[in-house]
């Protein structure tokens, strides 16, 4: 089951004792703060978890995969996520237990 904002708010309610409204608001604001920082052109670095990095991409040739028609992919700014060492190590540990 995927983790959602509702689960995260529930966690703040149970483990930190915030009331349900505060918990919901804080989760919403947590993601909004990251979005706003990225929108303003800032990278967001959350040590132990990972970094949200902005990249600009130049226009490049593309193709409509259905029709084969050539259309340029316009220049754009995109967000990439680079997981931190700690998160990578924890996720790899999961792979080890499942695949061995």
């Amino acid at each position: 089951m995927a983790l959602t904002k509702a689960d995260m708010a529930e966690m703040l309610f149970e483990e930190l004792g915030l009331n349900k409204r505060e918990a919901k608001e804080l989760v919403e604001l947590f993601f909004e703060e990251i979005r706003a920082a990225l929108e303003d052109g800032n990278d967001v670095k959350l040590s132990g978890f990972g970094n949200f990095i902005l990249r600009t991409k130049n226009e490049r040739p593309g193709r409509n995969p259905k029709t084969g028609e050539e259309i340029p992919i316009t220049a754009r700014r995109v967000v990439t996520f680079r997981p931190g060492q700690k998160l990578k190590a924890r996720v790899e540990a999961y792979a080890g237990s499942e695949h061995q």
Binding site: I34, G41, D43, V44, K45, L46, S47, I53, R55, T56
Partner: peptide, 9 residues
């Protein structure tokens, strides 16, 4: 890489 400014935790 465009951004120079960073928001930390």
């Amino acid at each position: 890489i465009t951004s120079r400014i960073t928001m930390t935790k």
